[in-house]
Amino acid sequence: MLKIGNHTFHSRLFLGTGKFPSFEVQKKAVDASGTEVLTFAVRRMNIYQQDQPNFLEMLDLTRYKLLPNTAGAQTVDEAVRIAHLARASGLCDMIKVEVIADTKTLLPDPIATLEATKILVEEGFTVLPYTSDDPILARKLWEAGAHAIMPGGSPIGSGQGLLNPLYLRYIIEDSPVPVIIDAGIGSPADVAQAMELGADGVLLNTAVSGAKDPVKMAQAMKWAVEAGRLGWEAGRIPKKVVATASSPKEGMLD
């Protein structure tokens, strides 16, 4: 069981809702993933084209917890404003703090992320900041009261996997709150690697929505999360530089 603030989840896979080829595929992918947490962005409504279908409004909201993000925010004030808007929906108290500092790398602004986290924790939100793989910043975030830490494996949407598994491991070993690897994951192997490092969960979007078959990939990711988690709990063998036979040396035929 994964516990974040007052919420508990059976599934350790969080799924983003952006860039799916169609709502039909997206619904099937969400089902196949087994996720209980879906992320959303907050945007102005197009009041002149309001008949456009809205994915959130098609969901059975008793089955999922919403994790709105503050994507689009470049400052502390913008992030806090989006968080307030999201909470006023009455649908959620969780917020993914995302303050982007740079349009090329989409890396988060560490100082603004920490500041926004402090404010939103104080205001009673369940706060999950998206951060870089900096272990010291991660520590400052949970010291500030963040309910989970969400370090990126590599740049958002890049599919590069985990570029610095060592730093992610430092973050995981240090953190008293759950660590969810967010951003950059490209394949089930990346997911299994994250879980085998001891991550408490992963947040995926493009790796599923951009796959040739998003529904199959959602299923694969579900299994990768479970396999990686079981592998971590089981405890892998140490790596050795010499071979060790698995079969007995005794009782050989002459």
Partner: peptide, 10 residues
């Protein structure tokens, strides 16, 4: 006045 909604995002 701003009227916002939840849209797809990661």
């Amino acid at each position: 006045v701003e009227i916002v909604q939840f849209v797809g995002g990661g």
